[in-house]
Nucleic acid binder design. Structure first.
Lengths: 333, 333
DNA sequence: GGATTTTATGGTAGCGCTGTCATTATCGCG
DNA sequence: CGCGATAATGACAGCGCTACCATAAAATCC
């Protein structure tokens, strides 16, 4: 209010102390007499002093920024991961710098390049698919790197997530145990979403173990959505393969499938069983709670941050944290 | 790779030019001969030089950061706003610094204090409820400020959103025109979500115009969710007031209400009409598409950024942008 | 063909802060 | 009461970059 943009020096002058003393008061460092602290604090509020992190960062060569690269915000899964990240960051004095890559490695590279100039203490991204340049920037070893969601490959530094391949396998075993034999699959464009593809592969593998296979599948172009699931299930059923269960690439799609059944008068489970992935709230509120696999999105974000910040220096060994998944039995399969 | 952390000076030395020339190449400023540009660029890649924005910012007194304060990430509405913000930011070289306030003005203040030290060019927040300190920081006038979602009050600088009061009024007029007379209301905790409250007020006002009023209402404690909507509708109906239409605080709640009807065998619209707010995708995929009001969340974020960045200096006059809303007729009312 | 403009480059002085190394009270203690 | 320890403060250099002002060479002009 008072001043245009007060600096440490202004505060020091007004308080009648040296700059470094003000700096210490602001950062709560070293021994400061009560008297001095008060003088400084009153000067600070009188001048509406706001520290300049750029200067601080330059002088101390350390930022408190964490770069976060998310594929999308349209899919509720990533905001939930972000919630976990924000929770992990809370109270640590760290701030997230967020970018949305649209599942595009080149976009990721561009954002990362830009983020790196802020000298973040850590980078959080998703999956293992990165451009050469991205990989090089992240590998240089100075900062910590977490790759979230997936643990099916070797991480650069830290991976936090679940095995999607294994999730797919568990799905098919579970459904086969329930007696289903004619498996349908409804998915979305998985060139972007490699993890959906991994789950599909796991599913096929799990079925193969039992001598089963997928009798019909439909891939809806574009990203996953309720609408896509609804439309794609209709397409699948029109093919006439008469599956007794349909596995969806995720819950959004599965909820869409459920809506299709409601609209088409198909009695879910008796006529056609449905199975999703993620365990979203919406699926559990339906008249017939969705049978699905719970992934722990919030936990993934939170754990990643906790590990990253607890060990600021990258360990020699890479680390993989499995946040697991559980079957939600539900009433649709 | 090569170097620990190369600086401009290192690049200049290797390229055999002055620092400022390197700086110009990096920033694409001023006239540079093709020859020099190449020498510099090759030195840059040889050293894996990454500019240091902290230094740049300090020297030029300008950041490219936009502070974004969102109440929540659990509610899909805000990720959608954020998508709009990210879209508006794309290609401008600006980066968002994101904080989640949990609908808490004190949390907002804490985050803002922290963000201000990065000298953002603009601050984007939601609503008009801020602490005194927050208001003071934002009013100082140096940076641009957008308050999103709501336009029912006087903004500090720029407001982008819709009139929730008016949305409530339109809702009741629309439903009254359709012949509904016995209005129920199902909401969530609106001490946090002031806009839901405004819609409610508008709804009541709109009803009053027609000599109508709400015959029964239930407020579910806690934030809005599908589950909350489902439970609260059950509670409401148990009260026995026999409404012919229920207005929900938003689509999440309304979808929950729809699920309750499905489960309880209530034929939607004939036995009980449902009306939401937001126009989320999920509501439109249901067997009976939800009757609701579309708010333009993506647009709110995008427009805010566009206006903010197009006029870096705060104008003398405050500005309000109405992104409007439209009735989605649907099949539930 | 000298004056003027344009193109290409560099020197220097900070931006606002913190790390390092002093320096000066003040205190406990045998 | 003198000595090391602790508490409280300051001087100063420099983090890596860019704004500002200059300079030199080449191009343009009447």
């Amino acid at each position: 209010m008072t001043n245009a943009n007060a600096t440490l020096a202004d505060v020091a002058r007004l308080a009648g102390v040296s700059e470094i003393t003000v700096s210490r008061v602001v950062r709560n460092l070293g021994p400061i007499s009560e008297n001095t602290r008060q003088k400084v604090n009153s000067a600070i509020s009188k001048l509406d002093y706001v520290p300049n992190r750029a200067a601080g960062m330059l002088a101390s060569a350390g930022s408190n920024l964490v770069a976060v690269l998310l594929p999308s915000l349209s899919n509720i899964v990533f905001p939930e991961v972000m919630r976990g990240i924000a929770e992990g960051l809370r109270g640590t004095g760290h701030q997230p710098l967020i970018g949305v890559t649209d599942y595009d490695p080149l976009q990721e590279e561009a954002l990362l390049t830009s983020f790196m100039s802020w000298r973040p203490v850590a980078v959080i991204t998703t999956g293992f698919e990165h451009t050469e340049t991205t990989r090089r920037m992240l590998s240089s070893g100075r900062i910590r790197v977490a790759e979230l969601m997936d643990i099916d490959s070797q991480p650069i530094d830290l991976a936090v997530g679940l095995s999607h391949r294994s999730a797919g396998q568990v799905t098919s075993r579970h459904l086969a145990d329930l007696g289903y034999r004619r498996f349908g699959y409804v998915g979305h464009d998985w060139t972007a979403d490699r993890r959906a593809r991994l789950r599909y592969d796991g599913l096929v593998e799990g079925l193969a173990e039992r001598g089963l296979s997928i009798v019909a599948e439909t891939l809806n172009p574009g990203p996953s959505s309720t609408e896509a699931g609804k439309a794609a299930l209709a397409t699948l059923l029109a093919k006439g393969a008469a599956p007794d269960v349909v596995v969806f690439s995720n819950d959004d799609m599965a909820v869409g499938g459920y809506f299709h059944c409601l609209a088409a008068g198909i009695e879910v489970k008796r006529d056609l069983a449905l199975f999703g992935f993620n365990g979203l709230e919406i699926g559990q509120c339906m008249p017939a709670p969705l049978s699905t696999l719970r992934s722990n999105r919030f936990l993934i974000g939170k754990q990643a941050v906790e590990v990253l910040l607890s060990t600021p220096k990258r360990p020699d060994e890479t680390q993989t944290i499995d946040t697991g998944f559980e079957i939600i039995v539900g009433k649709t399969a």
